[in-house]
Amino acid sequence: MEKIEYTDEGQFFSGHVACAGCVEALSMRVILNTLGKDTVGVVAPSCSAVILGGHPMSAAKIPVLHGTLESAAASASGVKRALKAQGRDDTTVLCLAGDGGTYDIGLQALSSAAERNEDILYVCFDNEGYMNTGGQKSSSTPRNAATGSTPFGKTTRKKNLIEILAAHRIPYIATVSPSHLNDMAAKIAKAQTIEGTKVVIVLIPCLPGWGVADNDAVATARLGVESGVFPLFEIEDGVRYTMTKSDKSDAINGYLKKQKRYRHLTEADRADLQAEVDETWSRLLAQAETTV
């Protein structure tokens, strides 16, 4: 079997207050340790802010600036420019936000930073809703998923943020999953070497928000990747697509079954979701094939 191979340098501390079994904390551990000591964090209000903070304590060994929800990317841009002014060109600026702070409230700031190609690494922990405030829907919530504000399932589809970002022609966009930690570490390490705006989207099956068992978030994420619901891929300069995993299983049922938010689905709903996944997948494959 393939062994997990990144080194834990102690950049992320025990005692953080993420839920038991939270894979956002797990992903944070991989990301902080991969980026190393010469990193400054900027975090939007989100689960990440809660996990990292709790003044006067911090779960990260790096300095972290807690900003506002709409301004994460702008704050990170400022921090990076300030570091440059100090001659610290090599210091990585890591911006952490949830999908609420990325797809919805922080989108304007992110779009502006991307347009200016600010030299930041923006990581979006995408748990497909406002899970930190009780589980309301965001524009990242997929169709049919039940949330606190869409108890009968969301009626519209998930916003395709990746295509929006690709349209900015930023140098690097990638998707990663807590079920594939070597891939996560490799993509974060790669992003760190690239100058300009890098965005990495992490799939985070939220235990309370999605209704997933405490020990099941990794398996759920794995099924998300394997069924093609959350494809793993990279986009370079907004146009060059590379599939990390270029095959998918036939059915998303296994993925849906793990989550209480999909418990109300009818056979027809599942078929709709499957069709959506198949369509997105083949579109992605076509893009990857034309750019190989």
Partner: peptide
């Protein structure tokens, strides 16, 4: 300045 001056480790989760 009210800098963060502790890691999260004293919290015995």
């Amino acid at each position: 300045p009210l800098w963060t001056h502790l890691t999260s480790e004293p919290r015995k989760t």
